[in-house]
Design a protein around this nucleic acid. Structure first.
Lengths: 137, 137
DNA sequence: TCCTAATTTGTAACGATTACAAATTAGGAA
DNA sequence: TTCCTAATTTGTAATCGTTACAAATTAGGA
């Protein structure tokens, strides 16, 4: 696997300690964290880390296409490392967000009602497997 | 067409002037407005209207299923009158949101990877017809 | 008319995000 | 090495959308 430093260099982003740690976190943990969650996870290891740096870094990495920003039903931005195309499922009971590796070619580079479609975001909502099993008791 | 007052009564919501005007606005204008947009549109006609009332009303009507709250790519809630199933297209150039009356049965009451799907939100992003035509100029 | 509950209102608070300017850091030139 | 400059990081304050809350207003029934 490519190193985080390589990935940053390929996109002309200086691989500072903060940027490396933030991107590393997003590549390792597929939890779709918010900026604050990332900050909380890293501040122990980097006590001088600033929340502004987290926001700046997320913005930079998203602009370069390394990360994807998700608007998943709520008023806070979540981020994920941009890998294979997939969609999201959010459990209304436990709040967890799952990746679903099902793709939909139907929207790819298509024109719908005259509009040129460049991206599609599919968000599902319901009760997750784990909560369903707990309910059965 | 059913009157706004009838709709409210059917859902056991007292048809106060404020609630009627807010729901009426959303039924008449399919612009997916934010709470603030609705407030701005109505405050001339109802000078004592409070933004809190707009938020309260939107919350009530959404809980009763009369309205649908949309999380469309951005950190602000937008609302629409709940009619036929449709999906949304947002133009990245002019910011306008279009309704696309295409339905996707593939998600209806389905189980995906063990999760029970109850709702699906499909958000498309790209350049709208009007902006495409302007670009050709 | 009076009473009570529902509704509305305005203010203050909150949380996520951004603006901004100062402080720090890193890398190249002398 | 030291100096210089630009990039990066930091902390504070501001902003924006939203919510909490309590007082004021309204509406409908006794």
């Amino acid at each position: 696997m490519k190193s985080i430093i390589e990935i940053l260099k390929e996109h002309n982003i200086a691989p500072s300690m903060q940027r490396v740690k933030i991107l590393e976190y997003l590549r390792n943990y597929k939890t779709h964290p918010t900026a604050d969650m990332i900050y909380q996870a890293l501040v122990d290891e980097m006590p001088t880390l600033s929340k502004t740096t987290v926001y700046n870094t997320l913005k930079t990495l998203t602009e370069k296409g390394i990360l994807v920003a998700l608007s998943l039903f709520e008023n806070e931005e979540r981020y994920e490392y941009n890998t294979d195309p997939h969609i999201h499922f959010k459990c209304t009971k436990c709040g967890k967000i799952y990746d679903i590796s099902k793709t939909f070619e139907c929207f790819k580079n298509e024109e719908i009602e005259g509009h040129k479609v460049l991206e599609h975001h599919i968000n599902l909502k319901g009760i997750c497997k784990s909560c369903l099993e707990n309910a059965k008791g």
